[in-house]
Amino acid sequence: MAQVLVVDDSSTVRNEVCDFLKANGLQVASAVDGKDGLDKLKSDPAIKLVVSDVNMPNMDGLTMAEKIRGDLKNNAVNIIMLTTENSPSMKERGKAAGIKGWIVKPFNGAAVIGSLKKLVA
């Protein structure tokens, strides 16, 4: 049972984000790529928020988001992308996949925790 699923292939980022969210009282699960993320989300219906990297091996974050909405038919979970850049085409895809927001790296917990907590509530 977790509230937030953190998906990132970089263990450094993953751990940093997970630790920060845990330290702020959230229950956190993590996944190493898009495929893993989909499996974790399938097995844990309590997840309210997915914070995902974009560029990952096996399945990238945007594809995962599309599959969450498409294959899993899960329109309730909030999806936030962690990114280093964003192009109009990325934003277009994100919008189609119902992505709530984009957090530009580096992850600055203090700046985003308030909004993230609202998305979990």
């Binding site: 964003n86 934003k91 600055n108």
Partner: peptide, 20 residues
């Protein structure tokens, strides 16, 4: 990237990225 992440998106994104 922060500017791009804010414009055309929910205002929440500004909170996310304003520090950049």
């Amino acid at each position: 990237a922060a500017g791009g992440a804010c414009i055309g998106e929910d205002v929440m994104n500004f909170e996310f990225n304003a520090h950049l």
